[in-house]
Amino acid sequence: MKGDWVEIVIDAGGVTRTYEVVATRAGRRVDITNRRGVVEVSEVTRTGTPVRTARFMASRILALVEHPVTGDGQARPSGEGSEGH
């Protein structure tokens, strides 16, 4: 659903980096796949066609936070640190 987004925090050699993948248009969603030590976060269309994909080594991921959208189009707080998004 438009507005869904996922935050990925990774360890980049002593420094943390944060990446975001967002469903940018109506009907799109964000899917997460974990295969062979690689985590893929993709924005996909209604038919399942990936629009953009981010890949991360699972061993480098410190946090992966999903922010689903409620029925009113606002991101639902999903825990600590999600205020203000």
Rank of each mutant, 00 (worst) to 15 (best):
G48M: 01
R28F: 09
T16R: 09
T70Q: 11
T24A: 11
M1E: 04
P68Q: 09
S78M: 15
E7Y: 01
K2Y: 03
S42W: 08
R35N: 13
D72K: 11
G81S: 08
G79K: 02
G14N: 04
I10N: 02
Q74G: 08
R36N: 14
R29W: 02
M1F: 03
R28I: 02
R25I: 05
G13F: 04
S78P: 04
R28S: 08
R35T: 12
D11Q: 09
S78I: 14
V21T: 12
T53S: 04
G13H: 01
L64F: 06
I10D: 00
E80L: 15
V15I: 10
G81V: 15
E7V: 09
A12S: 15
T49D: 15
R25F: 01
Q74D: 11
V21Y: 02
A63I: 02
A75K: 07
R52S: 14
T70P: 02
Y19P: 01
A26V: 06
A75I: 08
P50E: 03
R46G: 12
R46F: 07
M57T: 06
S59N: 12
S78G: 14
G81T: 12
R35H: 06
P50N: 01
L62P: 04
F56R: 00
I8M: 09
G84K: 11
V15Y: 07
A58P: 05
M1V: 07
D11W: 00
F56K: 00
T18E: 12
D72Q: 08
R55K: 15
T45Y: 03
E20C: 06
G48D: 00
D4L: 06
P77I: 08
V41C: 06
V44L: 04
V69K: 06
Y19Q: 06
M57P: 06
L64A: 07
F56L: 01
V38F: 01
V39P: 05
H85Q: 13
H67A: 11
A75P: 11
G48K: 00
E66R: 13
T33Q: 04
V38S: 03
L62A: 07
G84T: 13
R60G: 10
A26E: 15
M1K: 05
A26M: 10
I61Q: 07
V69L: 09
I8R: 01
A12G: 07
V15A: 12
T47W: 01
G79C: 03
R52G: 11
D4R: 09
G73N: 01
H67L: 12
E20S: 09
R36H: 08
V6W: 01
G3A: 10
V21R: 02
A75W: 05
E80K: 12
G73P: 02
R76Y: 12
R36P: 02
R76G: 07
T53W: 01
